[in-house]
Amino acid sequence: MRKVSRKKTIAVWDLGATKCAVGIIEVDLFMERFKFITSTSLYLNDFFSLDDLTQGLENNLGTRFSDIDKIMIAGAGIYDGYTLNLANGYPYPMEFAALAKSRKWSSMTVVHDYVPMMCATFIADLLDPDQISFIHPGVLNPYGRRVVFGLGTGLGFKDGLLLERKKFWLGENEVGHIGIPFPPRAMPDEIQVHKEFIDFLRTQTDISPNQSITFEKVLSGQGTSRLHQFVTASKDHLLPHEVGDLLRAGLAEETLALLAWYLGLLIGSLQLIFMPSGGIWMTGGVLLKHEEIALHPQLKKGILASPAYINERRSFPLAIIKDKNLVFLGGAYYLAYRASLMGQSVPAFA
């Protein structure tokens, strides 16, 4: 009879449009414990192919992926069974099926990039401020609908439910592509700024006249640059990292305020769409570098610009996921307890 090893190793890839991070997790199958071992992060443009990137990751980690029991690819885009395709494109083809075969990987699972982050909310230590920072603690319903989103190069999102016996259900959504609503009950000055900003966006060369104005275009990628250029009425278009430097130095207060207001408008919209008694969990490079956005008074004003069911919504927790290693632990949790849409468990290590 074949002896089943008590411990297994899992490699979780967190693949974005510009960067790839990989973490190694050790799972104790009998004690149901997850232990973070190590991680590395590399920029895609520093390599000329997926195979070259993989070799770089293995060199940094000091291990071969073929020696890992389970591999998860959590990537931005849509996987067709052969290639991970991103709307705006990767620097080179992400042909994971061919890669896994050529490098003799024992097992590979490709999922939406925010699957691990959603699962991370199931196992995070809510009392550890280095892991989770509560902007509004509310009253957490552990089995209530929860949503997670991240502001970075794009606007990633996932909703889900924690079920009994560590099972779970995950939704299929693309919230970043939702159009920005007209705030139903904002202050007159806020409505005026909102109208002027939307008109300004229509003048941008990278936004066609017939293109919808989405939250992703305002809060992610070039969004901070557009906000800052609008606020300062400048002809110069700063890069996002240059605007970030100004925010950190306290030299872009108006930009910070408007960014916080639009983030609040997004949060208020998500509250109404999902009624997430399990909390709204935020992450991504923009928020992790600029937590002051979520602490700004304009955030609350943006939320209250959509006032329906506000008494019920006051109980919904709002938090920032701060520990970057939680994405790797969440990925391992998914592979250990993954469930179908009906909540039926799948063998973790078949």
Rank of each mutant, 00 (worst) to 15 (best):
residue 160 G to A: 02
residue 107 S to T: 09
residue 191 I to V: 14
residue 240 P to A: 07
residue 25 I to W: 06
residue 284 G to V: 04
residue 247 L to H: 12
residue 265 L to V: 04
residue 59 N to P: 08
residue 322 K to N: 13
residue 291 E to D: 05
residue 178 I to E: 01
residue 153 T to Q: 01
residue 250 G to N: 05
residue 211 Q to G: 06
residue 53 L to R: 06
residue 259 L to V: 06
residue 319 A to V: 12
residue 336 A to G: 10
residue 7 K to A: 04
residue 135 I to T: 06
residue 14 D to Y: 03
residue 298 Q to H: 09
residue 344 Q to S: 08
residue 119 C to Y: 09
residue 324 K to C: 07
residue 206 D to S: 08
residue 47 F to R: 06
residue 242 E to S: 07
residue 6 R to Y: 01
residue 229 Q to P: 01
residue 44 L to V: 00
residue 32 E to N: 12
residue 26 E to A: 05
residue 293 I to H: 06
residue 288 L to G: 10
residue 338 R to G: 02
residue 281 W to K: 13
residue 120 A to Q: 09
residue 176 G to L: 00
residue 83 T to M: 11
residue 224 T to R: 14
residue 201 L to S: 08
residue 139 V to P: 01
residue 42 L to S: 07
residue 149 F to K: 05
residue 222 Q to T: 09
residue 208 S to C: 10
residue 159 D to Q: 06
residue 153 T to V: 01
residue 235 K to F: 01
residue 195 K to S: 14
residue 273 I to E: 00
residue 223 G to V: 01
residue 252 A to K: 12
residue 303 I to L: 03
residue 130 D to M: 15
residue 136 H to R: 15
residue 246 L to A: 04
residue 160 G to T: 03
residue 217 K to D: 06
residue 77 G to V: 02
residue 61 L to E: 11
residue 220 S to I: 02
residue 117 M to S: 07
residue 304 L to N: 11
residue 82 Y to G: 01
residue 88 N to G: 05
residue 227 L to T: 01
residue 350 A to R: 14
residue 202 R to Y: 09
residue 349 F to Q: 05
residue 266 L to G: 04
residue 224 T to C: 09
residue 81 G to M: 03
residue 37 I to L: 15
residue 313 R to S: 05
residue 218 V to D: 00
residue 348 A to I: 01
residue 43 Y to H: 09
residue 222 Q to P: 00
residue 317 P to H: 12
residue 240 P to S: 04
residue 266 L to M: 06
residue 318 L to G: 09
residue 333 Y to F: 13
residue 117 M to G: 07
residue 41 S to N: 10
residue 73 I to M: 12
residue 259 L to Y: 12
residue 188 P to H: 08
residue 140 L to Q: 13
residue 83 T to P: 04
residue 178 I to L: 08
residue 141 N to V: 10
residue 322 K to W: 08
residue 2 R to C: 07
residue 231 V to N: 00
residue 122 F to R: 07
residue 123 I to A: 13
residue 199 D to M: 14
residue 191 I to D: 12
residue 222 Q to C: 02
residue 136 H to E: 09
residue 253 E to Q: 10
residue 250 G to Q: 04
residue 182 F to Q: 11
residue 103 R to C: 14
residue 100 A to C: 13
residue 47 F to A: 10
residue 316 F to L: 00
residue 324 K to N: 12
residue 142 P to D: 01
residue 337 Y to M: 06
residue 236 D to M: 05
residue 100 A to Y: 11
residue 254 E to S: 10
residue 264 G to S: 05
residue 271 Q to N: 14
residue 91 P to I: 10
residue 99 L to D: 04
residue 182 F to D: 11
residue 29 L to E: 06
residue 248 R to W: 02
residue 77 G to C: 04
residue 121 T to G: 03
residue 121 T to E: 01
residue 18 T to D: 00
residue 41 S to T: 07
